[in-house]
């Protein structure tokens, strides 16, 4: 290894370590606050080294454990189904948009892009899905709207196909007699694992963290996703702080869970993704290897 390479390595490590710390410390603070004693936080503020510990926050959440487990199930289901279907549709739309041979690619790209700029807003979207498709209080309402794919992901993938999959590879596949669809499935996709992993990751996180569709389409608790349940508590506090309701409904105040519970909620919501994340990382690396092999 040359000295210059070593210098680069060290600079990179120093820079990234600093940023990593900036990302970890707040999360650590979050976690420590979730296992700290509520009164101690209110009295002394948040601390990385709380004076008193307590498992009250997790016990509070454990009270709803049956519902939480069910909600985890819903979330996993919608994440898996939504991400895989969304990824397939996204890739299928993005690929032709990247190919010069595909006549209407420019107008269609614009049509996709237009959806990023303009949206009909909440009410019309709600009307479409409840009146024409009758999705209210169904699992579909958590999968189909907003997230199946976004124009952003499509354009991202299109650009990737455009720049990272050499035209020559596609042409030679065509000369070998492979149909366009087969070229796409057996040549283009394997070359594109990094972007598939990236978009898959975004979609996966999107589904996992989505609470909004639950708020507008779901009133039946049987279909609450995990973020829906967790966010309900945060939304309640939000509502109290922007309406003048609290002093009229004193009971509402007593139902606000304390800071530690809010932090525990965040921890519970994030940890499963952290566990699942290495799975995606595998594909990042795979992409490199195939990229290296292909030439």
């Amino acid at each position: 290894m040359t000295s210059q390479n070593r210098l680069i390595q060290w600079t990179a490590h120093a820079f990234l370590m600093l940023i990593a710390l900036a990302c970890i410390l707040p999360f650590l603070l979050l976690f420590m606050s979730s296992i700290a004693d509520e009164q101690a936080i209110l009295r002394d503020g948040y601390s990385l080294f709380p004076a008193e510990f307590s498992d009250a926050a997790y016990r509070y959440l454990a009270r709803e454990s049956t519902q939480l487990i069910r909600a985890y199930g819903i979330t996993v289901l919608i994440t898996v189904v939504g991400t895989s279907v969304g990824l397939a549709i996204t890739a299928m739309l993005a690929y032709p948009l990247s190919q010069k041979a595909f006549g209407p690619r420019k107008p269609l790209t614009f049509i996709v892009f237009f959806t990023i700029l303009f949206n009909g807003g909440l009410v019309p979207t709600y009307l479409v899905y409840t009146q024409y498709f009758d999705m209210k209080n169904t699992i579909w309402a958590l999968i189909v709207p907003n997230l199946l794919m976004s124009g952003f992901n499509i354009l991202l993938m299109r650009t990737f196909f455009l720049t990272s999959v050499p035209d020559a590879v596609i042409e030679s596949a065509g000369l070998d007699g492979a149909g366009q669809f087969r070229t796409f499935v057996s040549i283009v996709l394997p070359l594109s694992t990094p972007i598939l992993a990236t978009v898959g990751l975004f979609q996966g996180i999107g589904y996992w963290n989505d609470w909004f569709n639950g708020v507008i389409f779901i009133t039946n608790p049987a279909y609450f996703s995990i973020q829906n349940i967790l966010n309900r508590i945060l939304m309640d506090i939000q509502f109290l702080s922007s309406s003048n309701m609290s002093s009229h409904v004193g009971d509402a105040m007593s139902s606000i869970p304390g800071t530690t519970v809010r932090m525990a909620i965040a921890v519970i919501g994030v940890v499963p993704i952290l566990i699942a994340y290495p799975f995606f990382q595998k594909y990042f690396v795979k992409g490199i290897m195939i990229g290296a092999v292909k030439g």
Partner: peptide
């Protein structure tokens, strides 16, 4: 369905 139809709502 998801984007253009609701745009009528503008």
């Amino acid at each position: 369905v998801n984007n253009y139809l609701p745009m009528l709502g503008l």
